[in-house]
């Protein structure tokens, strides 16, 4: 079942189409990546999902209810530009933000106790947010995002500015929230994180959706039939009748592309036939980063900012 269904959503600012007829489906209990260069329309799309902006056209359905005005109660949103009241104490601030999401003060306190122990911010309860380190502020912001147990959690660049320890901590929490039933929409332009975390991705550029699908499927779809093979000794020059061409050779390591009509076993047979000892052999799949750059290039002549 799809938790979030976006159909034909368009948003026009003055004369520019910030979001142009985008449709996508985010399956329940998945981690979904929304990718795109800066200014692609990600933030505008997210603001429409969170009900901060209204779409000019199309519909947004959350949890089976189209264009529900109570939608924001089921969403937890952490914007890219973090913001908290600097002069307010951590505890008061979290309590306030939780109550704005319709939790009662009592519920909010219970949840806050759980989360602040879990992310070890309890000691900071009575400190003003302005006194906290940046990493600590991020944790507070994260708690504010998930405190009301939203069905959909939208994280815009959640790891920017975090050290590796806190990055891992938040990453674990994301997996944990998913296990507990939440769906995570993850907006970023950091591709290596997408590959690691996301199950499905949507690629947006200049307001348009240019690619959508499961990460593995996309990699297969865009693979270039390249393999890497490592031999025990430097092989003889490859003959032209081989089932592949050599793209690059560094000593005992070759990067090759298979010719039309052949498959990987033919490569192995060729080398074995030549009496070469093979140490390692694997297919090279394109990284999401390469797909991203390729696709953005195809859709525009500009070099995307990655």
């Amino acid at each position: 079942m799809d938790l979030l269904i976006i159909e034909g959503v368009t948003k026009v600012f003055e004369n520019t189409k910030a979001v142009d007829n985008i449709s996508l489906r985010v399956p329940q209990q998945s981690i979904y990546g929304l990718l795109g260069p800066n200014g692609a329309g990600k933030t505008t799309l997210i603001r429409m999902i969170t009900d901060i902006l209204y779409q000019d056209k199309g519909s947004i359905t959350l949890n089976g209810i189209p264009d529900n005005s109570q939608r924001s109660l089921y969403i937890g949103y952490m914007p890219e530009e973090r913001g908290l009241y600097k002069k307010m104490k951590v505890g008061e601030q979290l309590l306030y933000l939780a109550q704005l999401k319709n939790l009662t003060a009592k519920q909010a306190k219970e949840k806050l106790t759980y989360w602040s122990e879990r992310l070890s911010v309890t000691d900071w309860w009575n400190k003003q947010v302005g006194e906290l380190s940046k990493g600590m502020q991020q944790k507070v912001q994260f708690i504010a995002t998930v405190i009301h147990e939203p069905k959909l959690i939208i994280l815009d660049e959640p790891f920017s500015g975090l050290d590796p320890i806190n990055t891992n901590l938040i990453k674990d929490e994301i997996y944990n929230l998913k296990e507990m039933g939440a769906t995570i929409l993850f907006s970023t332009h950091r591709m290596e994180q997408v590959e690691e975390i996301c199950e499905r991705i949507a690629l947006v550029n200049k307001g348009k959706l240019i690619l959508e699908g499961a990460v593995g499927d996309l990699k297969n779809r865009f693979k270039e039939h390249k393999y890497q093979i490592t031999c025990a000794e430097t092989p003889d020059t490859v003959l032209p009748d081989a089932p592949f061409e050599v793209l690059n050779q560094i000593g005992k390591q070759l990067i090759i592309r298979i010719k039309e009509g052949y498959h990987s076993n033919h490569i192995l047979e060729y080398f074995i036939g030549k009496g070469v000892h093979i140490h390692a052999f694997h297919e090279i799949l394109p990284s999401i980063n390469e797909i991203f750059i390729n696709q953005v290039h195809q859709n525009s002549n500009q070099i995307p900012v990655v």
Partner: peptide, 15 residues
């Protein structure tokens, strides 16, 4: 203050 602090986006996702 709310605008420059960017907290406004968090608040506006609730109200």
């Amino acid at each position: 203050e709310e605008k420059t602090n960017r907290i406004v986006e968090v608040i506006l996702s609730s109200v």
